[in-house]
Amino acid sequence: MNIFRLTGDLTHLMSIIVLLLKIHTIKSCAGISLKTQELYALVFATRYLDIFTTYISLYNTVMKLIFLGTSFSIVWYMRRHKTVRLSYDKNNDTFRHYFLVLPCFLLALVLNNRFTVREVLWTFSLYLEAVAIIPQLVLLQRSKNVDNLTGNYVFFLGAYRGFYLINWIYRYFTENHYRRWITWMAGIVQTALYVDFFYYYFKSWKNNEKLKLPA
């Protein structure tokens, strides 16, 4: 474990806490894409298949349980909770997320480290996580003004994989035989998708104005 990866994990956890706070306290999911939340639940479900078979550390297991639990409860809140579901912006959250699932699965079948069920699903979860934010970014551009909590949620979500990129560079130079081409490619694509969001996020923060993404 290094400081970059720990910061990345905590930033990821922060993004989920910001989202849960928004949904749980003000009972609203306005501006949040259910499609992206469903994709994240699928990402964790296919990535943490070995949660009960491979023990790495208490931290690792606890964090996996937190990510699984929070991602599924967010989907539940947005689909089932009597008040929260009313604020779901169904008309603008229309990105066909299965258009992302299928290509990621096909790519995982072709481009993986080992052709086993678990490895293909794990690789699928990496590819899917890289593009899972797209429905959310599309929704942000469609919803006129972005509230602070949603903006902060997307910011922390983008920052976490950015810290992972630094972690991979650090591990590449400090651990011999640390080669993760597939992980690195997916991580670079994932972070690159946030670049324009980061630009507008910092610009709005510098000019102290409301965050608005150009359509």
Binding site: H12, T54, N60, W122, Y178
Partner: peptide, 10 residues
């Protein structure tokens, strides 16, 4: 923990 082919990351 030992890296299980890179699976020691979340």
């Amino acid at each position: 923990g030992r890296s299980h082919e890179g699976k020691d990351e979340l």
